[in-house]
């Protein structure tokens, strides 16, 4: 693990999660891309542990490898070297079909641009992960409506994405990421397209609804306004984790989940 820049041993949450098992364990992970005959080293030996019940954030400048890292962690990209286990499972030992199935059952995604299917209602969008996993349509829609209710959109289940505000669309995306009860939720810039207040609403939702003792959240973000929601912040630069900030809400002097950068 990289050096610790800022640590607050009093942080109760850190103590809570410290004794738990690991959701993600990566060691010496590298990943390169070849473009125009040149190989770009996106990840240069990443060591990362994320505990169950932990909300981890990956931050850093553009091109530092954050997106590549969550792609590897989520089983979307194959690493070149090193070890990476998610809930004890190593993607390197899985076939493409097994990886796809594992992803469908174990990982939930929240994307920067929401990536809701525009022709589907909110309930239908939320039902998609269940349908992918073979749940019958009626049962999937029922579960999707219940999940939308949990994220405060119980009245908008039949709305199309274009009929929803940005914040509402992101809440639909969060409901979609949680509906099949995945153990790992990966979020890519979940608040960058949202205003301050809506961003905080979304983060409260993620922290209070999505996170529990058997689940982990990894969020890639540039949005310093939401750093206070993290249990740990992993700072990345040039394909490496260069710092870990523990209990950032305490370090930046804000309270609870409403911290501001």
């Amino acid at each position: 693990m990289t050096s610790i820049m800022n640590e607050h041993p009093q942080a109760a949450r850190i103590h809570e999660t410290a004794g738990r098992g690991l959701a993600i364990h990566c060691s010496g992970v590298t990943k390169g891309f070849t473009a125009g005959g040149n190989t770009i080293r996106a990840l240069r030996g990443i060591d990362l542990d994320v505990r169950l019940g932990e909300l981890a954030m990956l931050v850093g400048p553009s091109g530092c490898g954050k997106t590549t890292l969550i792609s590897v962690v989520a089983g979307i990209l194959d690493r070149d070297e090193g070890e990476c286990r998610v809930f004890g499972q190593d993607f390197a030992t899985m076939s493409a079909r097994q990886k796809t199935r594992f992803r469908g059952q174990t990982v939930g995604f929240v994307f920067q641009q929401f990536n809701l299917l525009p022709a589907l209602t909110a309930a239908q969008n939320v039902a998609v992960p269940l349908l992918i996993n073979g749940v019958a349509h009626a049962a999937a829609i029922k579960a999707a409506k219940e999940m939308l209710d949990r994220v405060g959109l119980g009245e908008r289940t039949e709305s199309l994405p274009k009929q929803l505000s940005g914040g509402q669309q992101q809440r639909v995306a969060i409901a979609r990421a949680m509906v099949h009860r995945p153990r790992l939720i990966v979020c890519d810039e979940p608040t960058s397209a949202l205003d301050h207040e809506t961003g905080h609403t979304v983060m409260r939702l993620l922290k209070n609804v999505a996170l529990d003792e058997d689940r982990a959240l990894v969020i890639v973000t540039h949005d310093a306004r939401i750093f206070g929601f993290a249990d740990r912040i992993f700072k990345m630069d040039d394909g490496r984790i260069v710092d870990v900030v523990r209990n950032p809400s305490a370090s930046i002097g804000a309270s609870g989940g409403d911290a501001h950068a």
Binding site: A127, L131, I132, N133, G134, V135
Partner: peptide, 14 residues
């Protein structure tokens, strides 16, 4: 969760 190799419900999404 029921597991099917080819989920039929996705036809509806299509």
């Amino acid at each position: 969760m029921k597991d099917r190799s080819v989920p039929v419900g996705m036809n509806f999404v299509a």
